[in-house]
Design a protein around this nucleic acid. Sequence first.
DNA 1: AGCTAATCGAGACGGTACGTCACGTCTTTAG
DNA 2: CTAAAGACGTGACGTACCGTCTCGATTAGCT
Lengths: 216, 216, 216, 216
Amino acid sequence: MPETRPAKAAPDASRRSERSRRAIFDAALALVSETGYAKTTIEGIAARAGVGKQTIYRWWPSKAAVLLDAFLDLAARTGETARRNDAHGGEGDSEIPDTGDLAADLKRVLRATVDELTDPAFDGPTRALAAEGVVDPELGARFTEALLEPQLRSYVRRVEAAQAKGDIDPGVDPRVAVELLVGPLHHRWIHRTLPLTHAYADALVDLALRGLAPRP
Amino acid sequence: MPETRPAKAAPDASRRSERSRRAIFDAALALVSETGYAKTTIEGIAARAGVGKQTIYRWWPSKAAVLLDAFLDLAARTGETARRNDAHGGEGDSEIPDTGDLAADLKRVLRATVDELTDPAFDGPTRALAAEGVVDPELGARFTEALLEPQLRSYVRRVEAAQAKGDIDPGVDPRVAVELLVGPLHHRWIHRTLPLTHAYADALVDLALRGLAPRP
Amino acid sequence: MPETRPAKAAPDASRRSERSRRAIFDAALALVSETGYAKTTIEGIAARAGVGKQTIYRWWPSKAAVLLDAFLDLAARTGETARRNDAHGGEGDSEIPDTGDLAADLKRVLRATVDELTDPAFDGPTRALAAEGVVDPELGARFTEALLEPQLRSYVRRVEAAQAKGDIDPGVDPRVAVELLVGPLHHRWIHRTLPLTHAYADALVDLALRGLAPRP
Amino acid sequence: MPETRPAKAAPDASRRSERSRRAIFDAALALVSETGYAKTTIEGIAARAGVGKQTIYRWWPSKAAVLLDAFLDLAARTGETARRNDAHGGEGDSEIPDTGDLAADLKRVLRATVDELTDPAFDGPTRALAAEGVVDPELGARFTEALLEPQLRSYVRRVEAAQAKGDIDPGVDPRVAVELLVGPLHHRWIHRTLPLTHAYADALVDLALRGLAPRP
DNA sequence: AGCTAATCGAGACGGTACGTCACGTCTTTAG
DNA sequence: CTAAAGACGTGACGTACCGTCTCGATTAGCT
């Protein structure tokens, strides 16, 4: 599974310099957090990484692609650390806990999402990539598949479990149920209409669950 | 209400050339629809409009700002036409019909929104502006205030009417209720996760209204 | 005798604002001495003078022309002061003294010229105008006629007086004789080849006078 | 001896494209002779040469510098041709002939100089560069050193030879002697005071040589 | 262990667009 | 009717990056 589709005449990935790859990621993330996405340039990344421009162009098609990979790499590394601390090996997607109390479980993770979207360290780069994805379908697909969908799938599994237990109406499409929760949250984040708070997350869960409850 | 905050040493708006303003809007919209937002340049707009670059830089701080104004101008003009045809004068925000059947009314407008977001003619420029707004808070605020909020406010009014009639639980915050409907829709549009269909709009309304119904 | 040939459709010179004329000269000279000729702009002069740009364009064809007039105006005013102090009214060109000792007289004025060309206050603007005149024949003619020729003519008169006395060969063209003195001086000034000193002026006079002496 | 002092962070001259350098010189000379110096722009040169603007800015600090180099390159090439035809290899500066008749030799070269300064093909660009040098000391130094001094030095050598033979007073500074000849010529050229003719050249030589003759 | 071919750092290159500056013209407002 | 003010179309400026390209100099992976 190649990290990125090479531009043309496929370079030999086996000879690739891991050293450079790391340096590029580090430089890219540093520059984005220091000067913002728009002011980050490929030339700047190359200079900062002590790398030739061609080494970037050889492996990535665009600035956004570099940054997405850098971001994913970061996420993978921090995720791995987290998982190792959880001491149960990497099974890929992190799971939403199932304490039996659906509302409490959802509030927990939704509040965590609120915290993440509120954290300035994540907010900046994430916005930049999301914005790029809005406009560039290809990159948007990668962004969605790599960052968004895993999260949504874990929600879906939790909802299915709840359906199995009878906490949620079996006629409801779990995917739509999940979007009912996550959509409004993202809406506020993306458009900055109103503040993103824990209270808002709780209100959403309460309201949505009432809609999802089994019919009498 | 000035159209845009001038960069510095405020030019005299009263001397402004309406001719140029119009030409710039026309050129901007034409170029965006022909070549896409990213490939549209200020230089290109100026050339196409038969206008000096400085005339653009004098009145707008960025390409995105030009396009937002062009877009708003277009919306205002088409809106005005529509309203004149409706023959009941301009009261500003368009209103959601109230036939008494809340679900039907909401489905109608939500389906219309789906159609709009699906129409390639609107999709392109709207995505471009939305993406820019995601990353540029100032522009995002203008985008939200001018295009998004009026729509949300009309939803809120319809929900309040429903609350007054007892169709919706009085304890529910109408704004949150509206986001419960609109959020998921935007989520699919923005992230292109799954297709935006009338069926999806209907499902959202049904699910949301169950959550909003008055408690027994 | 109009100060400058108007651009087109001759404006009515009698209605001309003396106030503006003065302000433009003052601003022009101030800007040139502060920031140099190249960085001085018509726009800048107008702003500094508190004058509309058109008021400059109405009366002068170019920046160089404005500055030449400003320079001449300055020279006329300081010259007038000097002449009034000399208490013998304005007869136009200043005269080279005739003490009877030709070599001494010439050395005196040539040394004075050296001092002037060496004085940074005069050097800058003079170079600027001279350079402009090298390239713009029309302006060069005005520069030459107004600043250079009067000086040369006074030399010519002194040489003619010397010829009448028999100090200089009667077969020599006085004009050429004068250029023999002044040419080398200007050459060093213009091209900055070697330092301009009093000693150099003296050497020139001595050498030239030996060439000009009456043949035995 | 680098061609030009680079602006900053010295580009690697060994990687320089000779192709571009030539194209730039050709374009610059063509444009100057077609439209004049003032109307020649760096942008125009780049376009005509099929070269990026940056390639000019990378190697030259100003339009005048480009043109000086173009001019020198031209002079070097034509000079080389001439010298090859003379069939006695390149010794750098061309030499003033020594036929034994000092006056005749000087008149010959001075007349040639008159012809050159009178030739419209040389006059234009030379004036432009000279003018620029009047105002820009750095460029003036290069202009002087590359074009003027070699000529002056060859005069000096001829004068020294004449001194050795006893044709010129040994007490005379040869450099000053040379300026006595060349200065007045340049003066007429620069200021366009009176026509530059062979007769004038002859008169200068005669007059000057009388001044330089050994004292009895 | 040596050969060979690709990748690497470096950066010059032809370009495009940027945002700024000044040009010279034109129009509007006040005296 | 002139003058100030300054917006306008124009065009060049000098800079920043783009993505491609050419250079030695490593640096693999295969003989």
